[in-house]
Design a protein around this nucleic acid. Sequence first.
DNA 1: GATAGTGGATAGTGCTACTTACCACTATCT
DNA 2: AGATAGTGGTAAGTAGCACTATCCACTATC
Lengths: 208, 208
Amino acid sequence: MAELSATTGVPVPTIKYYMREGLLAPGRPTGRNQAEYDDGHVRRLRLVRILVEYGGLSISVIKDLAERLDNPDVPLYSLLGAAQRTITERREATPSPHKEKAEQLVADLVARRGWRWEPDNPATRTAVGVLTALGEVGRQDMIDVLDDYAAAAERIAEADIRVLGDVDDRERTVEVVVIGTALGDPLVAALRRLAQATVARKSFEDQP
Amino acid sequence: MAELSATTGVPVPTIKYYMREGLLAPGRPTGRNQAEYDDGHVRRLRLVRILVEYGGLSISVIKDLAERLDNPDVPLYSLLGAAQRTITERREATPSPHKEKAEQLVADLVARRGWRWEPDNPATRTAVGVLTALGEVGRQDMIDVLDDYAAAAERIAEADIRVLGDVDDRERTVEVVVIGTALGDPLVAALRRLAQATVARKSFEDQP
DNA sequence: GATAGTGGATAGTGCTACTTACCACTATCT
DNA sequence: AGATAGTGGTAAGTAGCACTATCCACTATC
């Protein structure tokens, strides 16, 4: 276990805690108080750390994900959907006229883009929630650029799926979805900031 | 105060708490135990709630933001930068060969896109951190689509700046930056998921 | 044979974002 | 005019989370 801790940089008590919580399978026992950990443990531990650190996922969500990953009866396609759904946090907006407008906006956008309309998808709810909030603070201008956001999102999604196409075995596929979803978000956010800094400077220099 | 609570949906004790923490200015006193709250209070309270709920910002970060917003001596450009930086969380990666590669990747990307190279920008650090993590779990394939991500990010940033160009007064400008940054991230993330669902289905149907 | 480490369990920690409880006082309803 | 609910202000308490510390009997290793 000391070795597992050393190669991943995760403290031993934390590893124990993850095992207790079911995020990490126990090692193969080689004696009364000895167990062996293999490469799978290292991979899983790294995955957990990444999801916690960059994805900001809670331990219970990761546990849920880990359980599905470890259960061979769960078919791949449902795993992919579940992974996506689990990672996305639900954000209900309280009913209001703004919410209805927001729902219409999302429905129209989805139709315009030829996307699937999935009202129960947490991503749909989050989009509605964000647009509701924008409506409530009167930021119509931000709602107006929604199509640009959507086009950009589609481009990202295409890249995501391209990556997925290259992967064959089950464990890896799910790993890519989980990591890609959890790490892609902060990555896009970071790149957005970097681009903003440049674009902003450009347009402020033009008219200072 | 009951009215303030009713129009925003924030419980009275929470409003008191926010005032104590300096996120919200006290009302104009009209008597020994009575005060008046105006539209500015409603706006600010909504802003705080949005940043907490969708932006996932901590109270102390929001306090920092609120202080700058309320201080007329802080020039606009520094406020914009501060807002961006405050909202972005820092994510240091521990030194490793992967980290060096990641730094090189980001530097190259920035150069390729003609962006400004800002090594101390938390967004740069986050990008490096994410790429380091990807390297550590051996997800080279995800690193390969970085340019698509960057192109999409640039498109989003352009939309962001376009919105900003339409705003004139100080308080509103900062509000747009803060809200746009804090709400844009989850919005993009949600749209990405929606697009993924469609794109994935398309490519899985082709080869089931 | 001393020391450090093991798997396993329970209890404790530090942090954050609120909530509760209390105060003296006052607006408002009846 | 008296009961009731609400006010601003403050101090103390709470719930949840992600660990972290302590303890245990035991064992591998120096």
